[in-house]
């Protein structure tokens, strides 16, 4: 048994400065992994221990992707504890909000692309005036909750350079101002990691992100994407009731309405006459009314305006 006491390590434990923790988050296919690899390589060029951990089982299926990068003189855990991330890079707006509580309170640096990738799940309700089930916080609101925050339209910057997919490298450029590594090291790492055909654009994207961050660092009013409010507007959902009149005498049980109802809330009864099987699911879209060859269905919708009620 190798039972030698680890006294040297013990003594050192107190002296070791804590590891630096960066989280990279986004949606499958955005390049979370490339950013993580770049960070890991930067850590290595500085002679530090590096651990980089990711979950990518469902990554290609449009799901949440996150990666933890830790570097320091001594790194044990591959994952970052909640509240201990020194920086968070979010390649998508709602993903940044999802992980924001992992940042160190007071000092954590929040860097997010304000572009939204809206999942099909967020557009599920067909109801009259239904709101999109997407994160509501605006960049200005989010930045109030963190020590230091940058919310920029990195996709627009990258698109301006000719490659929207280089948005991840723009964000890396923004992060670079809060890390010690010299610019030349970052560029060398990107040069090594990016494929030949997109190398030049990625280097430009990095510089553009860094330039944006340097300006924003000196002027907090530049730190968030002012165009966000114009692109993203929310309305309150009105209260709407729906009723369906089905003329049983005219219905011949052709099944067209049942098959084509987007909410699948119609059915044929024992007499082969259509009826509203799930009234609470009906959104009043009128597809059944329009497609009924016998004009047997009428949809009535009533909007109750909350302001006048």
């Amino acid at each position: 048994m190798s039972a030698e006491p680890q006294t040297a390590m013990e003594a050192a434990a107190g002296a070791v400065s804590p590891a630096r923790n960066v989280m990279v988050v986004g949606v499958g296919g955005q390049g979370v992994l490339m950013i993580s690899k770049a960070l890991a390589l930067i850590g290595q060029t500085q002679g530090l221990q590096v651990k980089q951990s990711e979950v990518h089982g469902m990554a290609k299926r449009g799901g949440v992707v996150f990666s933890h990068v830790r570097f320091g003189e001594e790194v044990w855990s591959p994952t970052i504890a909640k509240g201990e991330a020194d920086a968070l890079i979010a390649l998508e707006w709602a993903e940044g909000l999802r992980w924001i509580e992992h940042l160190r309170p007071e000092t954590g640096v929040f860097i997010a692309d304000t572009r939204r990738i809206v999942p099909p799940f967020a557009c599920r309700s067909r109801r009259h005036g239904a709101p999109m089930a997407y994160a509501r916080e605006t960049p200005a609101e989010a930045l109030e909750k963190v020590g230091e925050g940058y919310a920029l339209d990195a996709t627009a910057i990258a698109t301006g350079l000719g490659e929207p997919r280089a948005a991840n490298t723009v964000l890396l450029g923004v992060l670079s101002i809060s890390m010690d590594a010299p610019v030349a090291d970052w560029l060398a790492v990107l040069d090594a990691l990016t494929p030949q055909k997109s190398r030049a654009i990625n280097l430009e994207a990095f510089k553009a992100g860094r330039a944006w961050a340097e300006a924003a660092r000196d002027d907090p009013s530049l730190r968030f994407d002012a165009g966000f409010a114009e692109r993203v507007a929310y309305a309150d959902a009105p209260d709407v009731s729906v009723a369906l009149d089905i003329n049983a005498a005219w219905c011949k049980g052709c099944d067209i309405c049942v098959k084509l109802c987007p909410e699948r809330c119609l059915a044929l009864d024992a007499q082969q006459v259509a009826y509203l099987k799930e009234p609470q699911a009906c959104t009043g879209c009128r597809v059944c009314e329009w497609l009924c060859p016998d004009f047997a269905i009428a949809v009535r919708t009533t909007v109750h305006d909350a302001r006048t009620a």
């Binding site: 499958g28 469902m58 299926r61 924001i100 999942p119 099909p120 967020a122 909750k145």
Partner: peptide, 16 residues
Amino acid sequence: AIPLGIEPMARPPVLC
């Protein structure tokens, strides 16, 4: 941890 009051948005994996 001090909760920041942000409700995370559901983003289940989907077919491509």
